[in-house]
């Protein structure tokens, strides 16, 4: 098992390296001159040259990469043009809302989506199945921000039950923190629930066709236990895989949701950085999100070893 985990850890290293190179090259290989874009339409050549100098764009590309990656490895992502402070520090400030939102959403999703998918699979072909699937298609077709505004309109504007926007740090009171996260995490979870419920259904349906399900029935096992002990236990690996992969969608959703609810997290930082053409920040945020995504999927892979004995031994 240790060997398997070690191999998985080592195999993510090239992916991380490629991501780093891609993120670096993205800025350097654009057809347009980043310095000119940063400087804006009214800049004179001297100003552009100054920016080139500050970005180190006049150095050979390999040297630029080494300088940049050297900094990144020490947690130094450079200085933000826009906020005029260290990007690392900026990210540190913005971490809490994003983490709170993501974790709350995942919690919500797993609690709702997995049972929904199992119920649909169990009632395969009936109206219950069609209902769940119908909601699922609807769920991942409605854009996150449309869901967001509908929820705001209903719960915050019309009913006035919940605050519209903003964030409260957890140390300033858990109640206020949670209250302000209810709508955002509901918003974000819609797409996610739609996906996971659907994939849970597919995985369970597939497993229900397996011979060992027939074996369990031939033993006289009840349908409920067949479903949970045999079907879900075997579908757990594909479901977990999907949850890992949908984290990419979650991250995209975080950006939009934070923007809709003006939560001062990494997503909002990304959008602001893009609008301000704040490249060091953009690079850092993308790198961070991508690394988080890769690492979460690494954790998922490691989790397989607890769910599937075929990997364990």
């Amino acid at each position: 098992m240790a060997g398997y985990i070690l191999r998985r850890v080592l195999s993510t290293l090239p992916v991380l390296a490629i991501v780093a190179v891609l993120v670096f090259l993205m800025l350097r290989l654009t057809p347009s001159d980043p310095a000119a874009i940063i400087a804006g339409d009214y800049a004179n050549p001297q100003q552009i040259e100054l920016i080139r100098e500050r970005l180190g764009l006049n150095e050979p590309i390999l040297k630029q990469f080494i300088i940049w990656i050297g900094g990144v490895l020490q947690g130094d992502f450079g200085e933000s043009f826009f906020y005029k402070k260290q990007v690392a520090e900026l990210i540190g400030e913005r971490l809490e809302p994003t983490l709170s939102l993501s974790l709350l959403t995942i919690l919500l999703v797993v609690m709702i989506a997995v049972p929904l998918g199992v119920i649909a699979a169990h009632n395969h072909g009936t109206w219950i199945d069609r209902l769940v699937m119908g909601f699922s298609v609807l769920g991942f077709s409605i854009p996150v921000f449309v869901v967001g505004y509908i929820l705001i309109y209903v719960f915050a504007v019309t009913l006035d039950w919940l605050p519209v926007q903003g964030y409260q740090r957890i140390r300033d009171g858990v109640g206020g923190w949670l209250l302000r996260l209810i709508l955002p995490s509901m918003t974000l979870s819609v797409v996610f629930i739609a996906f996971i419920a659907r994939m849970t259904r597919t995985s369970v349906l597939e497993v229900l066709n397996e011979d060992y399900i027939r074996t369990a029935r031939a033993k006289g096992q009840t349908e409920m236990k067949v479903l949970v002990r045999h079907a879900l236990a075997n579908a757990a690996v594909p479901i977990l895989t999907i949850i890992g992969l949908t984290v990419a969608i979650l991250i995209g959703g975080v950006v939009v949701t934070e923007s809709v609810y003006t939560l001062p997290g990494l997503g909002l930082l990304t959008v602001d950085a893009v609008l301000a053409r704040d490249y060091p920040t953009i690079q850092a945020v993308i790198l961070l999100f991508s690394f988080a995504y890769v690492l979460i999927n690494l954790l998922v892979d490691v989790a397989y070893t607890f769910l599937d004995p075929r990997i364990r031994y």
Partner: peptide, 13 residues
Amino acid sequence: GLMAIPEILLAIA
């Protein structure tokens, strides 16, 4: 490597 960058973020970038 490309897939490791979440879709919307890559598009934004």
